[in-house]
Design a binder for these strands. Structure first.
Lengths: 204, 204
DNA sequence: AACCTCCTTCTACGGATGTAGTATGGCTTT
DNA sequence: AAAGCCATACTACATCCGTAGAAGGAGGTT
């Protein structure tokens, strides 16, 4: 694996575990078992390191977006064939993907939210937003296919709500009420919420 | 104002502007125009400073929750009098409050999300979650009053979605699509989304 | 074989950071 | 008025961080 990839992957893990504050040239070296100074040589400044980190997350995410193939590439194939039954099925599928974000992909999800927050005071990090826009576009297409009245408005709103559901479980805010990630209960609860949202945003 | 309050307020501003990484004893002194070493004297360790910071946010938030008086204290007064019309009115009110989070209260909102993320690797910060639980309880009561089928499940889900909407606009993720905070368009867009959510989660 | 180039490793240093310890000044108590 | 106490102000120090530069070495070119 490319040395650049090794470094940025270790950086993602560090940010997930310790927050942005834990992201240090030396810490990355240690985490990736690289000789001291390596990260500093590959990314001379901290800003460069962060940008590479964010870029890597964006790359992973857009790869996922393609692979997962939420029925958006089905949009040309199934124009208005999305009825309530298909919506329910879709809710279950998306719930499974989200549960994956919380378990297998927890590290990356955590790092992504840290990066999003970082982008607030660091405008050139808006690269990540490309991923966000892609998923928003996909949501628009989906809602349009399901016959939503104003998909351009509903798409981003839907994505924002889904992200909220994800963040809530990610940080364990609903620890008292929500089931732990990775369990069937969690997937069922998420699926129920998604079903509600999908029906609401498609007016069905 | 108490010296403790001066310090924690300056700390909140710093976290909002520079992220957790910008939170430094010396930086707080400078930001609050206090003599060097003051913050270090009041909060000997960085952990103590962060905990005080988080506690202050939680205090502000719970004060807001009481003051705003989302019609939850109307719950005993209006048992099941929440029809579609009242829900729409409520959506407009909540949209106004959220717009306030994004403009006047942007600093605190930003700091809160940073703190939530920090709580992930720093479990004793779960103090903030008390605020979250209070708003979740309020949402449960509200949805129950509006005749939701399973308020205990829908309440947290609703709050999570609202937080998602808020976060989305906070970081400007939907910059391409969403109207800027502080504008009437933003409030209208938020109100529309909230109306959709309220109806969905109350099955109306 | 000599040379050059790029990847890698190591070291140096100015500055910031966390934390503790010491001095100072005013206010209270006796 | 003397003594004691506490909030405040300042200083010290070991560590860590960002960044730059130099040393070393493998591999390919002429």
């Amino acid at each position: 694996m490319s040395r650049y990839a090794v470094i940025t992957d270790a950086a993602i893990e560090l940010v997930a575990e310790l927050g942005m504050r834990g992201l240090t040239h030396r810490a990355v070296d240690a985490r990736a078992s690289l000789p001291p100074g390596t990260t500093s040589a590959y990314y001379r400044t901290r800003k460069a390191l962060i940008e590479a980190l964010v870029q890597r997350i964006a790359d992973f995410d857009s790869a996922d977006l393609e692979r997962n193939a939420l029925p958006a590439d089905a949009t040309p194939a199934l124009p208005a064939a999305l009825g309530p039954a298909e919506l329910d099925q879709l809710a279950v599928q998306v719930a499974a993907v989200m549960d994956g974000w919380l378990t297998t992909g927890r590290t990356r999800t955590l790092a992504r939210y840290a990066a999003l927050l970082e982008a607030t005071h660091h405008p050139e990090l808006r690269t990540i937003l490309a991923y966000g826009n892609a998923s928003r576009a996909q949501a628009c297409a989906l809602l349009a296919a399901a016959g939503a009245e104003d998909p351009e408005q509903a798409g981003p709103q839907f994505v924002a709500c889904v992200d909220g559901l994800l963040f809530d479980r990610l940080i364990g805010a609903g620890a008292l009420t929500a089931p732990p990630p990775g369990t069937a209960e969690n997937r069922a609860d998420l699926a129920a919420a998604l079903r509600t949202l999908l029906r609401a945003f498609t007016s069905k």
